[in-house]
Design a protein around this nucleic acid. Structure first.
Lengths: 231, 231
DNA sequence: TCAAAAGTGTTCCTTATACACCCATGT
DNA sequence: ACATGGGTGTATAAGGAACACTTTTGA
């Protein structure tokens, strides 16, 4: 922005800014899932993406972190180094019936191991599987409020693009070391049946990983080679 | 956003919202360029991306359009159907010394034919070529204000991704019909020396275009086949 | 006739895709 | 031993890269 005087800055009404975050994970059933919380207040009981209003001079990423802490009992510790990615600014002035609100949608990927404990202990949290590019909500609710379904769709799109060529760039896998089939579970959850040929996958990904020379143990079937991320 | 009462909405201070737009074009010299305007006011004379503050209940895309109209004499007519794409929200609270301002960066592609007339008649407008991922500014100025260099870099990145596989998806070319070398000029300006093999380019792109069976005329050298976008 | 630009054909690769087949473990 | 999942080898096809060569125009 340029060319405005200090007067001009104060001259216009300003919108409230919200952050919404689609926290995505791959469940134990190998499904892509999104973290939802049950709302309180006048629309109590319905599920929605976690979100908060931006505080004075707060960074967006910090607001996202605070949202997860305050709404989902996920302290920044659980995020270890992960930063939310901006997806889109939703700017329809009639989007929120409480007033003029711009919402900045974010994507954050967390391993299921970080989410499971808090979701298990909080009845107002759930992980909804994403099917046909929508969150499959529990109960009768069909869609998320405030056009949040679009956020989920955009998040999924981003991941599809990122996971076509590169091994787990967003770190759904908590561990630094994993087998190709563990990696495959994640990619399969994101990319689905198409674009996932076991054979090609193996060759494409192993090329981009470092072979630790270790083997998985204790599983049924032949032990798998354990790889590590490069660099 | 969810769960906030009407009270909560008014409770927090709100930032000013600005839109900045990187209008990109390919110049007659086959260079990628960005539209800049000379600022007035206390920092008069320096070049910057066009930008404006968001007005009450205004859509971001509308604010971008208004910016171009008010700052650059580019009425929405000149945009014909083109919509700006969001790139990123810059949220550093100290980014703007006039106060707390969030800036939503946008990318808009315009054919040089739309820009040349206004730039030629406005001394406070220029098209700066982009070299080494930066706007090469005229005069002594080295960088754009408010970290706008990053906006230009992000815009260029977006284009690189889009132009690797697909023929002119953002419509740098004004006409619906063009030869492969006209198309090549655009892709070359964006992708540079690497990632641009004449030969592969021809095969990859012609596959995705419709051959009109027409030939270019009046040029030196053999006339070229004229293609049209598919669908 | 020559320069300039467009376009084709061929060869050599790399990589996707698909199978067939062998390997190492738990039960 | 056999079921189960892991991994290799080979054949085919498609596409990228490089290069030589032909075609069609303007000057």
């Amino acid at each position: 922005m340029t060319g405005a005087s200090t007067n001009e800055l104060a001259q216009f009404p300003r919108p409230s800014i919200a952050v919404d975050v689609a926290v995505l994970t791959v469940t134990d059933q190998g499904e892509l899932g999104v973290l939802l919380h049950r709302r309180t207040g006048d629309k109590a009981g319905t599920w929605a993406l976690p979100g908060r209003f931006l505080r004075e001079r707060e960074r967006l990423a910090d607001a996202v972190e605070r949202t997860l802490d305050e709404k989902c009992d996920l302290p920044s510790l659980a995020l270890d180094d992960r930063t939310p990615r901006q997806l889109h600014v939703f700017d329809d002035p009639d989007r929120d019936d409480r007033g003029w609100v711009l919402s900045v949608a974010h994507l954050l990927v967390l391993p299921i191991e970080h989410l499971e404990p808090v979701v298990a202990t909080h009845p107002d949290l759930t992980i909804a599987p994403i099917r046909d590019d929508r969150a499959a909500l529990p109960g009768k609710q069909r869609q998320l409020p405030y056009g949040q379904d679009e956020i989920v769709a955009r998040a999924h799109d981003e991941l599809r693009r990122a996971y076509r060529e590169t091994p787990d760039p967003e770190r759904f896998l908590d561990s630094e070391e994993f087998t190709l089939s563990e990696l495959g579970t994640v990619h399969f959850a994101i990319l689905g049946n198409d674009h996932w040929a076991v054979d090609t996958f193996r060759r494409k990904m192993s090329r981009q990983l470092h072979d630790t020379e270790k083997q998985s143990r204790g599983v049924t079937g032949r032990p798998a080679a354990i790889y590590r991320r490069m660099r």
